[in-house]
Nucleic acid binder design. Structure first.
Lengths: 195, 195
DNA sequence: TTCGTCATGTAATGGGTTACATGATTAC
DNA sequence: GTAATCATGTAACCCATTACATGACGAA
């Protein structure tokens, strides 16, 4: 009982938002989209699908291919609504970073103002982290050995880099100061380049 | 029952390796050392301490300060041995990145050859991740929208950056081609700079 | 015919979290 | 005297994992 999967749930709804899929194919795509960060196992995927189905967010349909039976899942109207709700919510603490990554991966399904809110929320969270980390650094003053200090320095640098990345994304998003249309045709173009 | 905490366990043993501490102080230092990555809650810390005590890795001693009773924990010989075992082990999959961070934070407690093995193991893992990610990128060819693609590009870049960081650390570690002594006096110096 | 991959699931375990309960001590 | 912080713990829950079980299908 209770809520099976929050981050996994979001990812599943996000993929089904595009097209209906059966479990196995869903699993493969999940590992493609989320790729580097996280490997989703079928041991968590199938219970998650069963749960989403119980809650009425997805519908099942039996495809009999020869003697093999596979179940194709599709997003319901309720499910689409729930997807938007989950996308608008902040990270549920604990899996903070991964939650943002999943949200970002499905940015093309939501409106621009929600995208901006997520990006700015993320930036605020990272800046808070930076403040705390720098405050802690001043408070300790050489109580840490060289390795611990280097770890913190590297962490700080990585976070600063991510904030700059977010700044570019936010700027780029503001550049196209228009549509709240989800999946707007050709809407995304001014992505920060790799140069 | 069973194994309460693997990453938390390692962090606790690592801190107690330096000096005995009571639970509350341990918690605060944990949040200092691990800081940015993870906030340890007392709801997991105290059960972890009880478990380590049961297994004989740490010893308890009651300090009666006024009417307040606090329990100071100290590393036993078995505990020190267990700490070295945990430090030598690879990340237990799932919490891959965090495990490395904790290991790194306690590098000064272990010998140089173990440090090098950990750093090289981490680099190998990241390089595998890069290979898979790049292979997946070639396999898909524009099946991803701009946001998903940008997420992958950014992930790749971050990982590449981390590999370069590891290379510097490994090089620096090889520079001082000597002691297997844990806590060697003044042993760490050639840390890569921030320039 | 055997091996890889497709396809769906269950059971047990892991490694944490938040919320709650309790009470002493210190600072204002 | 009241609020923050010190100090220790329990209970309930969360979100996933690995290992296991089962079986059809295609290709070598």
């Amino acid at each position: 009982m209770s809520r099976r999967g929050a981050i996994l749930e979001l990812a599943v709804l996000g993929l089904l938002h595009e097209q209906p899929l059966h479990g196995y194919e869903l699993g493969k795509r999940l590992n493609g989209v989320l790729g580097a960060f996280r490997v989703v196992s079928y041991g968590s995927l199938y219970p998650c699908l069963a749960n989403l189905s119980t809650k009425g967010f997805i519908s099942q349909e039996r495809d009999d291919v020869g003697r093999k039976t596979r179940i194709t899942y599709a997003l319901t109207t309720d499910g689409a609504q729930h997807f938007l709700t989950l996308m608008s919510q902040a990270a549920p603490s604990g899996s903070a970073d991964e939650h943002f990554d999943v949200q970002f991966a499905f940015f093309s399904r939501i409106s621009q103002d929600v995208r901006l809110r997520i990006l700015e929320g993320r930036r605020t969270k990272l800046e808070q982290r930076l403040d705390e980390s720098r405050a802690a650094a001043r408070a300790r003053r050489a109580r840490f050995d060289a390795y611990t200090a280097e770890l913190h320095r590297h962490g700080l640098e990585s976070t600063e880099r991510e904030v700059r990345w977010l700044n570019e994304l936010i700027h780029s998003e503001r550049g196209q100061h228009s549509g709240s249309h989800p999946s707007s045709p050709d809407g995304i173009s001014a992505m920060p380049g790799n140069s």
